[in-house]
């Protein structure tokens, strides 16, 4: 398993690294506990909604730094509507691919960008804050990548059941075979992704 030359180039000499002075919006995703965290700083033109400048900071591995770097390249100069269309697969392809266990880095970078745009839109009254629902949970689980397949667990139909009770208890049934060595990693990732929702009071994961 190796990194592509492009990943190494962006890792060694990342583009748009550092803090932006007076940005329109800042967003952070990931956590030090998981070993990766990205912060994006965006300067957005309030009239044209063009991302005029963007920078990032990273606590993470080589691919974490490289994916954040390539995402800044991909969206700089684009409108926020265009930027929303950039996917983690686009970022991965632009880097000539990533090892399967590193695809979650690409997802993290795109998630952080989308969070920044969403925060900006809410702040500027361009959209309403989303009410918390089962759909939000399912959407969030699209960011959990099953390492071996390089696809998310919703697409792979590994999530069999999701329920959100009025008291904030969330029930998730996952279909991952007992012998699967990625089992506990996936469970940890699901917990990590849902941690940021204060609406979730209790999370009960059942493994088939």
């Amino acid at each position: 398993m190796q990194y592509s030359q492009k990943v190494l180039d962006h890792f060694m000499k990342p583009h748009n690294i550092g803090v932006l002075e007076n940005p329109s919006i800042i967003a952070t995703e990931g956590s030090p506990a998981c070993g990766d965290q990205v912060t994006f700083y965006l300067q957005i033109n309030d009239d044209s909604h063009v991302i005029e400048d963007i920078s990032f900071q990273s606590y993470g591995c080589a691919s974490n730094i490289a994916t954040a770097s390539i995402v800044t390249d991909l969206v700089k100069g684009k409108t926020i509507e265009e930027a929303k269309e950039v996917s983690w697969k686009d970022a991965t392809n632009e880097l000539d691919g990533l090892p399967p266990v590193k695809l979650h880095c690409s997802v993290l970078a795109i998630d952080t960008l989308r969070l920044a745009i969403k925060k900006y839109e809410i702040e500027k009254g361009l959209r309403d804050p989303e009410p918390f629902s089962k759909d939000v949970i399912i959407e969030e689980l699209r960011s959990v990548i099953y390492p071996q397949a390089g696809e998310d667990i919703i697409t792979l139909k590994m999530v069999k059941y999701v329920r959100l009770d009025d008291d904030g208890t969330v029930y998730i049934d996952l279909d991952i075979p007992k012998f699967d060595q990625n089992r506990s990693t996936v469970v940890d990732e699901v917990k990590e992704h849902l941690e940021k929702y204060p609406e979730i009071k209790d999370l009960k994961i059942t493994l088939a």
Binding site: Y3, L8, F11, M12, C34, G35, D36, Y59, G60, C61, A62, N64, I65
Partner: peptide, 24 residues
């Protein structure tokens, strides 16, 4: 404040081989 795999990779680019306890 920094992550071991990134240190490991940068050392590798500089022709140095070490190991890390990082999850990454």
């Amino acid at each position: 404040y920094i992550e071991g795999e990134a240190i490991l990779m940068m050392l590798d680019v500089n022709n140095i081989t070490v190991a890390t306890g990082s999850a990454c």
